[in-house]
């Protein structure tokens, strides 16, 4: 962090950098930092914000004092009789579901997005191909929700109006109620998420791929490297900073993502995620303190990714 290791080129005076930063910092302070701190206070208070959260404790039950809302946020969904039950209940809680979402959706969107960006570069209809992957992003979810309900619809009559079940019955199978079957439904919802967000990853990664200089690729080809080797040995290392950026952004997006679950299942049948629970506590149960505590947990959950980003930041500058 000492300025000594910083390349000479970055030393442009002490005041100048703040001139570039000031507008952004001011606006972010007013619209994010100040309101957030304002609201975080509520996470230590009862539901009307009139007394400390400690007053909401019930006799004979576990109590974390002013951190009572955090106790609720973290443990309300868990069965804390034994380690085993904690483990089991964790995986069907909103936290477990959010982890599933992060794991499946981030690898799905980044993987498919990167693969598609690379493949699309080699064909003449690149713009069209990318536009089609991007299109779901442009459809607002109010509309997209309608069609996905029709994809997963489970009909009770002979005629299936849901696409997947129509295929299943045409092949002689028995229709599956996708959205009300616990565990299967979360995967089905993640698929909707991948459909929507792959275009995002693809666009950013594609922009980064365009910055890989032609000379480098040509040089590798002249050396006789296969396309596969070029991909892993040349392209991925060059765009790895961007891959980390996309992963970080996607993790954040998934943590905040709530409309898919809200529209498709309303959090029923074991599909609840953290963002959903926050919304429910805030606006359905009017437990602002609890809702805010969940939000703070969300913010804390991102710390490992902040660490990862700082490390990469340092590594990048060390290479200059």
């Amino acid at each position: 962090m000492s300025s000594a290791n910083v390349p000479q080129v970055m030393k442009q005076g002490k005041v100048i950098p703040w001139f570039y930063l000031a507008p952004a910092i001011i606006i972010m302070s007013i619209f994010i930092v100040y309101p957030m701190l304002n609201t975080v206070v509520l996470s230590f208070l009862n539901k009307d914000g009139t007394a400390s959260a400690a007053t909401t404790c019930n006799l004979g039950q576990p109590c974390w004092g002013v951190f009572e809302n955090y106790r609720y946020a973290l443990t309300a969904e868990l069965n804390i009789t034994s380690f085993n039950t904690i483990w089991q209940s964790f995986w069907v809680s909103s936290y477990g579901n959010t982890l599933k979402w992060i794991f499946i959706m981030v690898s799905g969107t980044v993987g498919i997005g990167l693969g598609f960006a690379i493949f699309a570069e080699r064909v003449k209809y690149e713009a069209l191909a990318k536009a089609i992957i991007f299109m779901p992003m442009a459809i607002s979810f109010v509309g997209a929700g309608v069609i996905w309900k029709f994809v997963y619809n489970w009909g009770t009559s002979q005629v299936q109006v849901g696409l997947l079940n129509a295929i299943i019955t045409a092949l002689g199978g028995k229709p599956v109620p996708f959205l009300s079957t616990t565990n299967l439904n979360t995967i089905m919802l993640v698929i909707v998420g991948i459909w929507m967000w792959t275009g995002f990853c693809m666009t950013i990664l594609s922009a980064a791929l365009k910055a890989v200089p032609d000379e480098v690729l040509e040089a590798a080809r002249v050396d006789g490297a296969s396309e596969w080797q070029i991909f892993w040995g040349v392209m991925v290392p060059i765009i790895s900073p961007t891959i980390i950026v996309v992963i970080t952004t996607m993790v954040i997006n998934v943590l905040k993502l709530f409309d898919i679950v809200y529209v498709m299942t309303g959090g029923n049948f074991g599909t609840e995620v953290i963002a959903n629970r926050m919304y429910d506590e805030m606006y359905k149960n009017f437990q602002t303190g609890r809702g805010t505590a969940i939000a703070v947990v969300l913010i804390i959950a991102i710390i490992p990714f902040i660490y990862m980003n700082i490390r990469r930041f340092l590594a990048q500058e060390a290479m200059r």
Partner: peptide
């Protein structure tokens, strides 16, 4: 009934049938 009762009731019956 104010607070989260309504949604608790909805979620409850859904869970029961399921």
């Amino acid at each position: 009934i104010p607070g989260g009762f309504g949604s608790a009731e909805f979620k409850g019956i859904t869970e029961y049938v399921n």
